[in-house]
């Protein structure tokens, strides 16, 4: 007498087929990828974005940063200039921080005293500077996408941004599409 609880080969094949389908679904789902929309241009918030990104990249998670609005100031290269800007664009250029070195703190900025103190503490406690973090991020293959629309609003040109290997200009749809594939999405 055969044991009735023993599955037949046909049943096993059926189960195998169901499992294959499930695995295929999971594989086409979310990737081991982190997408961050970086909108704030404050030193503390940009730092947070890079600390999290570098930790993720150290865990072999693909990292994609989408820089928009105030955060663009952090990507400006202090040594670069763009010609042929209109009056408003020039004003924006003058009033916004020119690169990581000029970013303000969201709290306790105290006319620049705050960032000086934080940078001093960071050095003292061996925390990488934002400039070092950018360098590490580049080496880790962290991608930076600059929001073309906000760059346009503020009159920033691509040639004014830092030399970064994985920097490109794109629109919000790029962020949405990539964030949809990511297992983690953050907004800073």
């Amino acid at each position: 007498m055969s044991n009735t609880t023993e599955p037949t080969p046909a049943q096993l094949l059926e189960q195998l087929e169901a499992l294959k389908q499930r695995v295929a679904q999971l594989e086409s789902g979310r990737k081991d990828q982190l997408s961050i929309a970086v909108v704030s241009g404050d030193l503390d918030k940009v730092l947070a974005a890079f600390v999290i990104s570098i930790a993720a990249a150290a865990m072999d998670t693909q990292v994609k940063l989408f820089f928009s609005f105030w955060s663009l100031a952090a990507l400006r290269d202090a040594r670069k200039k763009a010609k042929g800007k209109d009056f408003i664009s020039k004003m924006f250029g003058m009033m916004l921080p020119k690169g990581t070195g000029q970013l303000k703190l969201s709290n306790m900025n105290m006319a620049g005293m705050g960032p000086m103190m934080i940078k001093h503490l960071m050095r003292k406690q061996n925390v990488m500077s934002l400039e070092q973090m950018l360098k590490e991020a580049a080496e880790l293959g962290i991608e930076i996408t600059v929001c073309e629309m906000s760059a346009g609003l503020m009159g920033f040109r691509k040639e004014e941004f830092i030399d970064y290997p994985n920097l490109r200009m794109a629109g919000a749809a790029t962020f949405v599409a990539e964030a949809g594939e990511s297992s983690m999405q953050l907004f800073i």
Binding site: V51, I54, A55, A58, M59, D60, N126, V127, M128, E136
Partner: peptide, 13 residues
């Protein structure tokens, strides 16, 4: 030991 978070993780990687 000469680096704070996320430095050690990066060094390990």
């Amino acid at each position: 030991r000469g680096t704070a978070c996320p430095g050690p993780l990066l060094e390990a990687k």
